[in-house]
Design a protein around this nucleic acid. Structure first.
Length: 589
RNA sequence: GCCGAAAUAGCUCAGUGGUAGAGCACUUCCAUGGUAAGGAAGGGGUCCCGGGUUCAAAUCCCGGUUUCGGCUCCA
């Protein structure tokens, strides 16, 4: 057991050191980079040179680590002058350590710290646990091997990073590993395949999902709900094309920054540069600017579900989380400065409502610019200061708690991001509301004020669930595939007992369908038990078994998802129940 | 894009140089079923694609595609 006086982070950091010592024993020519503690464990970056290290070696390293732990070696701290350290690392050809020390020297350091464990001495600020023997038996595990750039810069050499997870006890480690296993069971890619919601095709291309009829139901329900919420606060849906001239993005500023991440489209009849659009905002500026606007028309609000295309790097694609073709419940509001607050508050209101409906918790993050890096953004410091203060005031006035994050702003302005938590406590960024003083000016948008003078409106960019596709992936994992009734692709499964009941099942299914209930019949030549098992695996909310008893009465035998007790209910009442659940988007069954 | 791993039946996977396999699914037959696997038989393969080594390649090598775990990126 790791003693109480040694906190977990220190122990994790020490494990990284122990791993490095183990690696040093196995590969004496290895070069060391850095090895910090992480949220759930630790890692160390190594340069193995020509040696190939694979996942199989993790077991070997782990054994060696356990050996070091059993020996109960002391962590001996010592200090060297910067010059001595530089000489030492030069001699040992530890060029990464050398670079680190040289940087410390530039920062004015005179002395550096070393920790020695057995015969392995590593540059390290510490602190460490007293002895390797303090690590609890079975409290850590090496999990994966991955590439990582030296100092996180893709221009630098790729090192080999070995990850480990570590906790105060074996019990806590096991709990964590169980959580990972649960996350794996809920993986939207796996459930999406099992439930037949979407597919990818080598012929269509990576990151380009195809939704089945069932998947399209879920996607459409998400969009439908988002549209309802948007209409509630005055946003009306518009429709825009998927390609446009480069000029549009040159004016918006996206061309300079994101040109390499956009798909270029060739025309046979013109030399004009066209692109598939990666976002809707510039298009909406054209709608606004299509005629002269009066202050009386403001706020002018539009929303759009057009497909968006981004040429993401191949390694960045992942299931529905990161796609090359997706959409957004993307809305833009053009308004006067004195209308900003009300607009933000109304959007925050519907987002809150949406998250309640989806049964998700969330918190607000205020994403600000990085004042040390003004070149990353459009517009001058004064506008940024002003708009950031405005957003913070809105949160304060409405007593909404928030976290601030510098350097996370959009290029055109600060934003409020909504970080939601799923049932496993994992965080996802979903909604966003962004303030933009830049874009309207760049496009020369104006409105005529009360005095007949032209003024520039402010633009607010916002999304409620962000990308419906990505959100669908998040929901699959959040619900572990058990969608609430209103989102379920199949709401009722009808199981026939015998062959003579099939006609009646079809008649019943017809009645359900007429009442907009999504229904499926399982009339396979199988036992009732087997058909129940399959329906349960599909996470269908309601399963009906139809036999002689049901045919001779108006009562239905309903099996609710997750329950084994059978409920008897009149057919009309059951249909009404589903209608209510769908109408009010009730989460519980 | 970079580092590493993987791709075999519809699905999950076994097979490591010598006749392509299992479970589930599917089809047919028997059973006519009552709330989480009834029985039997059968069909089903571009072993991701292209090249190479070999008497012989699903298996070894090279290139490509796609996927996965990371890194970098994410308007």
């Amino acid at each position: 057991m790791i003693k109480k006086d040694d906190n977990l982070e220190v122990a994790r950091h020490s494990l990284a050191h122990i791993m490095a010592a183990a690696v040093f024993e196995l590969w004496p020519n290895v070069r060391f980079a850095i090895g910090p503690a992480t949220e759930n464990g630790f890692y160390y970056d190594f340069d193995f040179g020509k040696d190939k290290v694979s996942e199989n070696d993790l077991i070997k390293i782990e054994k060696k680590m356990n050996h070091i732990i059993r020996r109960g070696l002391k962590f001996e701290k010592s200090e060297l002058s910067v010059e001595e350290a530089i000489n030492k690392e030069k001699k040992a050809k530890q060029l990464y350590k050398l670079e680190l020390i040289q940087d410390l020297k530039k920062g004015g350091e005179k002395k550096v710290c070393y920790y020695e464990l057995g015969n392995f001495k590593d540059l390290c600020r510490g602190p460490h646990i007293e002895s390797s023997g303090k690590i609890a038996k079975g409290s850590f595990k090496l999990t994966k091997l991955a590439g990582a750039y030296w100092r996180g810069d893709e221009k630098n050499k790729m090192l080999t990073r070995i990850y480990g997870v570590a906790f105060a006890s074996k019990k806590e480690l096991d709990e964590y590993l169980n959580m990972l296993a649960e996350a794996e069971r809920r993986d939207h890619r796996k459930i999406g395949k099992e439930q037949g919601l979407f597919i990818f095709s080598d012929l269509i291309g990576p990151g380009l999902p195809v939704y089945t009829d069932k998947g399209a139901i879920v996607r459409n329900e998400i969009i439908k709900y988002s549209n309802e919420l948007q209409r509630e606060i005055g946003y009306n849906e518009v429709h825009t094309p998927n390609i446009n001239k480069a000029e549009l993005f040159k004016i918006s500023g996206h061309y300079d920054k994101y040109k390499d991440d956009m798909f270029r489209v060739a025309s046979n009849y013109s030399d004009e540069e066209y692109y598939l659009k990666p976002m809707n905002c510039p298009h909406h500026t054209q709608l606004y600017g299509s005629r002269k606007r009066s202050y009386k028309e403001l706020p002018y609000r539009v929303s759009d579900f057009a497909n968006l295309y981004r040429d993401e790097k191949p390694g960045e694609l992942s299931g529905l989380s990161r796609l090359r073709c997706f959409s957004q419940d993307d809305g833009h509001c053009f308004c006067r400065e004195d209308q900003i607050k009300d607009e933000f508050v109304s959007v925050l209101g519907v987002i809150n409502k949406a998250m309640k409906t989806y049964n998700m918790e969330y918190e607000i993050r205020l994403s600000l610019w990085d004042p040390d890096n003004p070149d990353k953004y459009l517009g001058d410091a004064k506008v940024w200061e002003k708009s950031q203060k405005l957003l913070e005031d809105i949160l304060k006035e409405n007593k909404i708690s928030y976290r601030k994050k510098e350097g996370e702003a959009a290029i055109y302005g600060p934003k409020m991001d909504l970080i939601s938590k799923d049932s496993l406590g994992r965080e996802w960024q979903i909604s966003t509301i962004q303030l933009d003083f830049i874009m309207p000016e760049r496009f020369g948008l104006t409105y005529v004020n009360e005095e007949g003078k032209e003024e520039t409106p402010v633009m607010i960019h916002r999304a409620i669930v962000g990308s419906p596709e990505r959100f669908m992936g998040i929901l699959i994992e959040h619900y572990a595939g058990a969608f609430p009734v209103w989102l379920s692709p199949v709401q009722v499964k009808i199981i026939s007992v015998g062959e003579k009941h099939i006609d009646y099942c079809r008649k019943l299914a017809g009645e359900f369908a007429e009442n907009n209930v999504r229904v499926e019949i399982d009339d396979n030549n199988e036992t009732v038990g087997n058909k129940i098992r399959k329906a349960a695996g599909e996470k269908v909310p309601y399963v009906l078994v139809i036999g002689d008893r049901e045919m001779s009465s108006e009562k239905l035998a309903v099996r609710d998802r997750g329950k084994t007790k059978i409920r008897e209910i009149a057919k009309d009442k059951f249909v009404k129940e589903i209608e209510e659940k769908v109408k009010h988007r009730i989460f519980e069954l």
